[in-house]
């Protein structure tokens, strides 16, 4: 890569971010808010104290895990919008193990993570089967299953798994301490979830780059029909890609349930599934960009939580900023290709 190329890439990457910030600033001014104070509040909300920063990492982990899974499905040419529901099913799987199995932590924690991955994988396979055998586009199959999964979580929380005596949408009874992911003292994150995210990212990066499986997946993503006629088992790879992505999403859901909330709550997936799709788009479908973009998004998401409390600005501002940047980035890629 030549030097001019590098500066070119940088410009086309930074431009959309700056423009996104300008438009978000205009949005803030439109509602009569002070942009400087809003951004300062977001900054301290994300980095103002060690506990705040650990909240950012709490959001970073599911974003990385979700993005890692989506790298697989996007490579195979699939739009796994069902990832949000797959995270929910992972959390439900983990909660089920945490509630029913009585074992010491060193056995229980891996077991509930596996149960989470399994729950996500099975839910994703359902979307995959709908596509492969039912010819229902994965966007509609996945999206419909998202709503069903969220309904199921809500049903469990106020129904069979309700807290003793009171049925409340605030969540189930906390898991027994043996089912909690260990955290660093005073913080809401621990080594296990960070290791999970980084190892998953490295594994998928290597598998997509350096294996026959990765190559075949890429061939399907570029032209499924051509790959099929060349002898690549298209349907099997599609189902496999769904299952793997679902497993990573399920892992993220299990991690949220056992590592962050220590119980099942209705919005356990926190929108991280949909947000992971934006992370992968902004990373240009490259694994290398995922941890950084995910970190930026996690900081914006957690930083904007403080906005309504401190400044009476809606926390959706974070989503506006993220969406604006991704939209401008996608559009700028088109502009760049056109005038090359």
């Amino acid at each position: 890569m030549s030097k001019t190329n590098f500066w070119n890439d940088l410009g086309w990457g930074v431009g959309p971010i700056l423009l996104g910030l300008v438009l978000t600033t205009l949005a803030l001014m439109a509602v009569g808010a002070d942009p400087a104070r809003a951004y300062a509040t977001m900054w301290t909300g994300a980095f103002g104290a060690p506990e705040k920063f650990s909240n950012v990492v709490d959001a970073w982990v599911p974003l990385v895990l979700g993005s890692v899974g989506l790298l697989i499905t996007f490579t195979a040419g699939l739009w796994n919008i069902g990832i949000e529901g797959q995270m929910v099913m992972g959390a439900i799987g983990a909660a089920w193990v945490a509630r029913t199995v009585d074992l010491p932590a060193p056995v229980l924690v891996p077991l509930l993570l596996v149960a989470g991955a399994l729950g996500g994988a099975l839910w994703a396979l359902l979307a995959g089967a709908l596509k492969v055998y039912g010819r229902v586009h994965e966007i509609f199959g996945g999206l419909g299953l998202n709503f069903v999964a969220m309904g199921l979580a809500l049903y469990l929380i106020i129904g069979p798994w309700k807290r003793a005596g009171i049925a409340s949408t605030s969540g189930t009874e906390p898991f027994p301490p043996a089912a909690w992911l260990p955290n660093w003292p005073g913080l809401s994150v621990g080594p296990i979830e960070i290791a999970l995210a980084l190892v998953s990212l490295a594994l998928v990066y290597l598998a997509l780059r350096g294996t026959l499986w990765g190559l075949q997946l890429k061939a399907i993503g570029k032209n499924a029909r051509a790959a099929f006629w060349l002898g690549v088992p298209t349907q099997r790879h599609w189902l496999g890609a769904f299952a793997l992505c679902g497993a990573f999403a399920g892992l993220a859901g299990a991690e949220q349930a056992a590592g962050v909330w220590a119980r099942l709550i209705p919005s356990i997936s926190g929108g991280y599934g949909y947000l992971s799709i934006l992370v992968v788009l902004l990373s240009g479908f490259q694994a290398g960009g995922v941890p950084f973009v995910a970190f930026f998004f996690a900081a914006v998401t957690k930083g904007s939580v403080a906005l309504p409390l401190d400044l009476q600005i809606d926390s959706a501002l974070g989503g506006v900023l993220q969406g604006m940047i991704v939209l401008l980035y996608v559009l700028s890629q088109g502009v760049r290709a056109k005038f090359r």
Binding site: A27, I81, I139, A316, G319, Q322, G323, M324, L327, V330
Partner: peptide, 21 residues
């Protein structure tokens, strides 16, 4: 000449957040 699904999905998310904001 961009992917209609990608642009449409990003707009779905952005418009939802704009409506909340």
């Amino acid at each position: 000449k961009l992917d209609q699904i990608a642009v449409g999905f990003v707009l779905t998310m952005l418009c939802a957040d704009l409506s909340t904001f």
